[in-house]
Amino acid sequence: HDVTIHAGDKTIHVHGASEEFLRIIEQAKRDGIHEEELLRLIEELVK
């Protein structure tokens, strides 16, 4: 999957995102996670 995530003034493109990655991001959004926290989460996941 190619994913584009908008968080605040940043746009992150993730190529080859796994289903698990997508679920984590969707869950985080539903939980109302702060955008900066979401960015950190994404950066950890894509290392």
Score class of each variant (00 low, 15 high):
32 G>E: 06
5 I>C: 02
15 H>F: 01
15 H>S: 11
20 E>I: 02
12 I>R: 01
16 G>S: 07
1 H>A: 13
24 I>R: 08
18 S>V: 04
31 D>M: 11
20 E>A: 03
29 K>P: 01
30 R>L: 13
45 L>I: 08
33 I>C: 05
25 I>F: 06
7 A>R: 02
36 E>T: 11
14 V>K: 02
22 L>T: 08
32 G>P: 02
43 E>Q: 12
11 T>K: 10
33 I>N: 04
23 R>W: 06
24 I>V: 10
7 A>E: 05
27 Q>L: 10
27 Q>K: 13
29 K>G: 08
18 S>A: 05
43 E>I: 13
3 V>C: 05
42 I>K: 00
21 F>C: 06
10 K>M: 11
13 H>A: 05
2 D>W: 08
42 I>G: 00
3 V>D: 06
14 V>H: 03
28 A>T: 03
7 A>Y: 14
25 I>K: 00
16 G>E: 07
18 S>L: 09
34 H>S: 15
28 A>Q: 03
37 E>G: 11
20 E>C: 01
31 D>N: 13
25 I>P: 00
29 K>N: 10
14 V>Y: 01
25 I>G: 00
31 D>H: 10
6 H>Y: 00
22 L>M: 12
18 S>K: 06
4 T>F: 01
46 V>S: 14
44 E>G: 12
16 G>C: 02
30 R>E: 13
8 G>N: 08
47 K>T: 13
32 G>V: 04
33 I>G: 03
8 G>F: 01
39 L>W: 09
13 H>P: 05
16 G>I: 07
4 T>W: 00
35 E>L: 15
24 I>T: 11
12 I>K: 02
16 G>W: 03
19 E>P: 11
47 K>H: 11
42 I>P: 00
30 R>I: 12
26 E>A: 13
12 I>E: 02
33 I>T: 08
34 H>F: 12
11 T>N: 09
27 Q>R: 10
19 E>G: 05
8 G>D: 07
23 R>Y: 04
31 D>Q: 12
34 H>G: 14
47 K>Y: 02
22 L>I: 14
11 T>L: 09
11 T>R: 08
13 H>E: 09
29 K>C: 06
38 L>S: 01
10 K>V: 12
20 E>Y: 01
32 G>W: 03
43 E>N: 10
4 T>L: 02
30 R>W: 04
1 H>R: 12
18 S>R: 03
21 F>I: 15
24 I>L: 13
